[in-house]
Computed example of a mutant assay.
Amino acid sequence: MLSNRALDHAAAIEMADREKAIREVRARVRRGPSAEFCQDETCGEPIPEARRLAVPGCRYCIDCQARLEQHFSPRRFG
């Protein structure tokens, strides 16, 4: 059985890894400006300014982004 100290250490490592991953994703997203129009090949609709400001670097409208996230969801393969 693991001691509390070992569990605390493992939790700290996990938290640090998670925070690093979040920083890396945010850095990639913020590299460029948001697209004004959805980059999905079948959509091309304007991306509302509120979304472009809330999600810097976004490339897809809300509907297409949701479809992409659902398609690539890990639960789909589990």
Rank of each mutant, 00 (worst) to 15 (best):
V55L: 11
A12H: 02
L2W: 01
D63M: 03
R30M: 01
F72N: 11
I62Q: 12
R18G: 00
P46Q: 10
D8E: 14
E19H: 08
L7K: 15
S34M: 01
A35M: 01
I13G: 05
D8N: 15
A21V: 01
C38Q: 03
L2R: 10
Q39D: 05
E19Y: 01
R75A: 13
G32P: 00
L53R: 15
P33C: 02
G32K: 04
M1N: 12
P74L: 08
R28G: 02
I47R: 02
D17G: 08
H9Y: 14
E19V: 04
A10K: 10
K20S: 12
S3F: 04
E24I: 05
R51I: 04
P33V: 07
D17E: 13
E24T: 09
A10N: 08
Q65L: 11
C58L: 05
P56H: 08
G78D: 12
Q65K: 13
E49W: 06
S73G: 12
H71K: 15
L2S: 11
G44M: 05
Q65D: 09
Q70D: 08
D17F: 01
R30T: 01
I62G: 00
P46I: 00
R51V: 07
L7Y: 06
L53Y: 01
M1W: 11
A27Y: 10
D40T: 01
N4E: 14
D40G: 04
P74R: 13
P46D: 02
A27Q: 04
D63C: 02
F72V: 02
Q39P: 01
R23H: 09
C43L: 12
V55K: 03
I13T: 14
C61D: 08
P56E: 07
F37L: 06
A66H: 06
E19F: 04
R5P: 00
D40Y: 05
S34I: 00
A54K: 13
G78K: 08
G78F: 06
K20L: 14
P33S: 08
R28T: 05
V25K: 14
A66L: 06
I22T: 11
Y60A: 00
L2G: 00
L53A: 15
R52I: 03
R30S: 11
I22D: 07
S3H: 09
E36C: 02
F77M: 14
G78E: 14
E49G: 09
N4C: 03
D8K: 15
F77A: 10
F37A: 13
C64I: 00
I62N: 12
A27P: 03
P74K: 11
V55P: 02
C58I: 14
Q65H: 05
E69M: 07
R75S: 15
I62E: 11
E45C: 14
G44V: 03
R67K: 05
V29I: 03
C61R: 01
R18H: 12
R59E: 13
G44P: 05
E19S: 09
P46M: 01
S34E: 00
D63V: 08
